[in-house]
């Protein structure tokens, strides 16, 4: 099973100049089981049980610095402590993990991305809205051009 890549593109200057995350952050994925709201912070990525999900962040202005500080699932309040401590440094954290196999499919699992930038103790911007939606195994074959693959 191939991993799902979720790419987070950030207009860092806009975000630090007062734009809302919805205006300055764009999420895309390559899920073979379908996605909703590509290019927005409301991205819903369809994922399969046991599938590897991998987040990467890219600044739109390539020389600015932006990192994912943490990713929190569920209804964590916006001011909840970030999911990872300051050690290791934010630039050496890779965010990827396997979708649990024992979770009932259907409901979306919203998550919050905490972004931080090239300054020690600088601002942390919480991006609310994206979600993973678990779909049953083989759903990717039905959603895509999977008819031939089923035969």
């Amino acid at each position: 099973m191939t991993p799902v890549n979720i790419q987070v593109f950030v207009d860092v200057i806009a975000l630090l100049s007062g734009a809302s995350p919805a205006q300055a952050v764009h999420l895309f994925d390559d899920s073979s089981a379908g996605s909703e709201a590509l290019g927005t912070t409301g991205l819903v990525s369809s994922v399969l049980p046991g599938q590897l999900v991998r987040w990467t962040v890219t600044p739109l202005d390539v020389q600015t610095q932006v990192w994912i500080r943490g990713i929190a699932f569920g209804a964590a309040p916006p001011d909840a402590p970030p999911s990872a401590a300051d050690d290791p440094p934010v630039w050496s954290r890779r965010f990827e993990g396997y979708v649990p196999a024992d979770i009932f499919p259907g409901a979306p699992h919203p998550y919050r991305l905490d972004l931080c930038f090239g300054a020690a103790n600088g601002p942390i911007v919480a991006v609310e809205g994206p979600a993973l939606r678990l779909v049953p195994p083989c759903a990717d074959m039905v959603a895509g051009d999977g008819a031939s693959r089923l035969l």
Binding site: L52, A84, R93, R94, F95, E96, G97, F104, H109
Partner: peptide, 26 residues
């Protein structure tokens, strides 16, 4: 030099994503 670690597990390898636990009804 720093070593890349997984942001969820704090270790070198990815684990199971910390999604919300299964619903009691299920």
């Amino acid at each position: 030099a720093s070593t890349m670690v997984n942001g969820f597990t704090g270790g070198p390898l990815p684990g199971v994503l910390p999604l919300a636990p299964p619903l009691p009804a299920a």
